[in-house]
């Protein structure tokens, strides 16, 4: 009798777990030889949340400039898991003296990335003085 109850509970637990952790991930198709050649930037990473860094991996950073000299930075991220991940990012801009450029538009932007998806985050500096950048990523709070 006791064994039956244990089996039943284990089966119920497995069903509940599989329903709760249902995963789906992205299939992708793109040109094998892309025509655009990104200018990749050597980046420095400080990881204090290894879980986020492991799941949502930053593939690389590339940059370009607009005609008027505004810097544009693009980060390519990849969700290495099979489930959707939610996090926020923020970009800080610095001038050539290393001073932060403050803005009334500063905000943390929420973003979601499906399992197996590659996604680009492109941000344009709103000041022509911006020469350096810093991206920060923060995993979204559980609600």
């Amino acid at each position: 009798m006791k064994t039956k109850i244990i089996f039943a509970m284990a089966a119920l637990g497995a069903i509940l777990l599989s329903a709760g952790c249902a995963t789906r991930s992205i299939n992708t198709v793109e040109a094998a030889q892309p025509e655009g050649i990104p200018y990749m930037v050597a980046d420095k990473r400080i990881i204090t949340d290894p879980s986020l860094s492991r799941n949502v991996y930053v593939i690389g950073v590339n940059e370009s400039f607009t005609e008027a000299g505004y810097k544009k930075v693009q980060i390519q991220i990849y969700n290495r898991t099979r489930s959707m991940k939610a996090f926020t990012y923020r970009v800080e801009w610095f001038d050539q003296d290393g001073m932060i450029i403050t803005s009334p538009l500063a905000n943390r932007t929420p973003i979601q990335i499906e399992g197996g998806q590659k996604r680009n985050i492109a941000v344009l500096a709103t000041s022509p003085k911006a020469v350096d950048f810093r991206f920060t990523f923060l995993e979204s709070m559980e609600r």
Binding site: T66, A68, Y70, K72, P104, L105, N107, V123, L124, T126
Partner: peptide, 14 residues
């Protein structure tokens, strides 16, 4: 509002 304004300004500049 900050997020919407930020993306609007980026678009106007670009």
């Amino acid at each position: 509002f900050a997020r919407a304004a930020d993306e609007m300004v980026q678009s106007i500049i670009e």
